[in-house]
Design a protein around this nucleic acid. Sequence first.
DNA 1: TCACGAAATGAAAGATATTTTCGTCCCGGG
DNA 2: CCCGGGACGAAAATATCTTTCATTTCGTGA
Lengths: 311, 311
Amino acid sequence: MTNDVKEIFGSAGAPPAPPAPAALAAKVRTLAPSMTRSMQRVAEAVADDPAGCAALTVTGLAELTGTSEATVVRTARLLGYPGYRDLRLALAGLAAQQQSGRAPAITTDIAVDDPIADVVAKLAYDEQQTLADTAAGLDTVQLAAAVTALAGARRTDVYGVGASGLVAQDLTQKLLRIGLMAHAHSDPHLAVTNAVQLRSGDVAIAITHSGTTGDVIEPLRVAFERGATTVAVTGRPDSPVTQYADHVLTTSTARESELRPAAMSSRTGQLLVVDCLFVGVAQRTYDAAAPALSASYEALAHRHRAVRKGP
Amino acid sequence: MTNDVKEIFGSAGAPPAPPAPAALAAKVRTLAPSMTRSMQRVAEAVADDPAGCAALTVTGLAELTGTSEATVVRTARLLGYPGYRDLRLALAGLAAQQQSGRAPAITTDIAVDDPIADVVAKLAYDEQQTLADTAAGLDTVQLAAAVTALAGARRTDVYGVGASGLVAQDLTQKLLRIGLMAHAHSDPHLAVTNAVQLRSGDVAIAITHSGTTGDVIEPLRVAFERGATTVAVTGRPDSPVTQYADHVLTTSTARESELRPAAMSSRTGQLLVVDCLFVGVAQRTYDAAAPALSASYEALAHRHRAVRKGP
DNA sequence: TCACGAAATGAAAGATATTTTCGTCCCGGG
DNA sequence: CCCGGGACGAAAATATCTTTCATTTCGTGA
């Protein structure tokens, strides 16, 4: 038996029976009857806990099952592998698959007593979801229009308070780096005061997740009435802010809860929109943007120390 | 089981590097810059074709990459494994995951003439990737330690300049909302001036993707020497900033290019880490944090108009 | 440009792990 | 009671991995 299998493998190269990828448990069941007692013990241990066995050497597994190295190797052969080394590799693969298969089950909310590893997984999953949703729901026509307006703007004002204020600043930083005149306002009074200066050809962008933040709506309204092109980045396309927006860019809203306030997931979507705006504008104004980007990079170089390579 | 091993590693006082399950590609990217040429060749081969490399012995991989066995082992060590044997095992696992996961790699870069819809898709995909990599590569032991320090801190200072400055502010905003004393510094002089005030029991957090930003390292160093608990959030775990960090939280680095500067992808990972810190602290101090969160929400209510439902 | 020292690298020795060999032991039948 | 056949494990043989150390390479400063 064993010899036959071996010879087939040897002569034909290996194509006839590629070693089991994930069907190992089945194989164990199938072959168990034709195994000797000690080999059954080994096979059982392997099928029972692939991950654990993958961490063991031949000697380790032999001891665990109360058998000898030779028996372990024989079992590996019977299961269709050239030797224990390869069985072990397959085992590691199997373990990884099982591991990853369980992953998507983390759709539950974050609880107060969740271990930190779960918190990381859940937050990452949620933010990924937010990105996917936002990307899927983004109106590319509106986006393109906003990009066009930005690329040709004499001046751009961005309004945002609280968490959205940081997004506004992020957009501003980026636009400045490619040579556009942009300014972020988080002070509502100054925002309005400045909005009065805007006129046709300028751009005003309001960032608010709820779409109801008065401190942000007000300057946008002023800009709108002054004839500037206005853009709203909001999670609520039917909210008040859109009244004064020529272009509305919608961000997705993930579930929120006590431990996961709005600021967290909305910010992720907003930043994606901001990045899209930036890249879009950089594309349109590439000839000017590319050198500007390099220049700003080099200007900062001396602020960084050389990285030490060694330990 | 892999988890068991990992946890044992973590709790047993082997903090440096718990083996990576699937975060290998991320780890390669993170560590590649600090590798020597030959080691980079090995790492690249490994990241490029996990399945193929898993089938090779040390000697085989050495020949394939035109290096020596010693170099291969060194690379395995750098990636966080005890030796090549274990790297190989992880590789087999990774290969199995990829196989089952059918990873649809839209690895193309953003081009100047990409239509806007492609830009959105690529950016979203990239940021999702960054999130996944960062989550996978985050050392939960370090994270838990940082959370503990934050939860019990008398005062917390956060340093960050440029794009990281916004992340620092984001963290600060969040911590303030649950009643912690936190302050973000983007002015290097003031940061150092304030760092001098720190003492044991306080926490200082430096956020820098490159890990080489002097303006951020300096205040962290001062805080470190004053006896404060120091945390570094960086994409380069071997960079200078980690010299003065009690706890290092590593963010993943996605590919970057002309139209996609470092600030964009690094920020995504940094924000995930910040969110994890926040939720972790909120969990620990739940009794105080929950009412504080509600209170801050209600205090803002009058700043929002009612949402109009109709057209 | 050259010399110097530190880091990188590979050849080979040394240590482990795996595979093979071979003899013992156990079991059922004559 | 003795014998044949296979299961089984100890230990030798081999393959693989790890460490050591001398050599080479590279960057640095004079």
